[in-house]
Amino acid sequence: MIYREYPPHPALRAHVACLWTARVTAPMAAAAAHVHRVLPDNCVDILWQDDGRQAYAVGMMSASFTVPAARPVRTVAVRFKPGAAGLFLGMPLHPLTDTRAGLADLWGRSPAGRLDDALWTDDLSDAQRLRLIETTLLGRLAAMEAASDAARAAPLGMRAVAAIEAANGAVSVDALADTLGVSRQHLTLQFRQQVGIAPKLFARICRFRRALALLRDARRAGDLAALAAECGYFDQSHLIRDFRDFAERTPGAF
Rank of each mutant, 00 (worst) to 15 (best):
A146L: 12
A225N: 13
L138R: 09
R220F: 13
L12H: 03
T121H: 11
G86Y: 11
V58D: 00
A153P: 01
V16A: 09
R4V: 06
T97A: 15
D174H: 02
L214N: 04
G108A: 04
F88L: 06
Q194H: 06
A211P: 00
A175W: 01
V171L: 13
L239S: 12
A63M: 03
P72G: 03
A30R: 11
R71M: 09
K200Y: 08
G86D: 07
P8C: 04
T179V: 00
R129V: 08
P68C: 05
A70V: 05
R159I: 02
A166V: 03
M91Y: 02
G196E: 06
L239P: 14
D117I: 01
R114F: 03
L141F: 08
T66V: 09
P68D: 05
R100D: 06
L156E: 09
A146Y: 04
R140S: 07
V38Q: 12
R219G: 07
T250W: 08
A30Q: 09
K200F: 08
R184D: 14
A118L: 10
R219L: 08
R23Q: 13
R159T: 07
L119A: 07
R140A: 04
L189H: 12
R207M: 02
T136C: 13
R184V: 14
A163K: 13
R71S: 14
G196K: 05
S148Y: 05
